[in-house]
């Protein structure tokens, strides 16, 4: 009946029922790339580098309403040695920057990273003395998730984009994709000029910068209040 009738009766004994019924083949043909990518993308183990508000949303996406386990990511790997994807959720001050870099260096290849939320991606509202202005100055980032904080759907979408990225990888380009300059371990990803370019003040923080360095006298600090 059905498929089994049309398939040629091969070496398999008729009593051994295959996936498609008795006599069907017990193997599949596929590309090695597709098979490996399929395995990788459906069992991503995230390393939750949660610091602030975004970490709470990350917990919410792991809880029952959003259920990250549907995508094979319920196994939060708190050890970087077993993790595949680093989720940097929350603001990263300079004091924490070497920790983030070390955790990234400790993760084995292949590895991906997600910058979750405005603060991790660009510093957000915190254009101040203590904050890293975007973790892409410290580590390479694959996916940026906007939002303050992003909703759990946003995080899940970001993880699915990582899956999409994995799906298009090929072993033939393994060394190209996975290349990491060993000299760059424990060093910032961006060079000095790049850091300055990436972290320049914009929007409201330009005005704050001018006030704080005295280039612009704030309306609040009139001469009366200073004397």
């Amino acid at each position: 009946m059905g498929l089994s009738d049309k398939l040629p009766r091969g070496g398999a004994a008729p009593t051994e029922g295959g996936m498609f019924g008795a006599g069907s083949p017990t193997f599949l043909t596929s590309k090695v790339d597709a098979l490996i990518n399929w395995g990788r993308l459906n069992s991503l183990w995230p390393m939750p580098f949660g610091t602030a508000c975004c970490a709470i949303e990350m917990m919410a996406s792991a809880a029952s309403n959003y259920d990250l386990a549907r995508f094979g990511m319920e196994r939060m790997s708190f050890s970087p040695r077993q993790a595949d994807v680093l989720i940097c959720a929350g603001r990263v001050p300079y004091k924490l920057a070497p920790v983030l870099r070390r955790i990234w260096d400790q993760m084995p290849q292949p590895k991906w990273s997600i910058s979750m939320g405005a603060c991790a991606s660009s510093g957000g509202v915190f254009d101040v003395y203590s904050m890293v202005q975007g973790i892409d100055t410290i580590i390479p980032v694959d996916v940026y998730i906007p939002g303050c904080p992003p909703r759990p759907e946003g995080l899940i979408y970001g993880l699915m984009m990582i899956q999409e990225k994995i799906r298009q990888e090929s072993l033939s380009k393994h060394f190209e994709h996975r290349a990491e300059d060993p000299l760059l371990v424990a060093r910032p990803r961006a060079n000095a000029a790049e850091v300055v370019g990436l972290t320049g003040p914009f929007g409201n923080s330009t005005q704050q910068e001018q006030i704080s360095t005295g280039q612009l006298v704030a309306p609040a600090t009139t001469d009366d209040s200073l004397t």
Binding site: K95, V99, S130, Q208
Partner: peptide
């Protein structure tokens, strides 16, 4: 502590 010092209090001085 201090691994999440985001200088709220300083930032507040520049905001209405």
């Amino acid at each position: 502590i201090g691994y999440l010092h985001s200088s709220f209090e300083k930032l507040g001085e520049y905001r209405t």
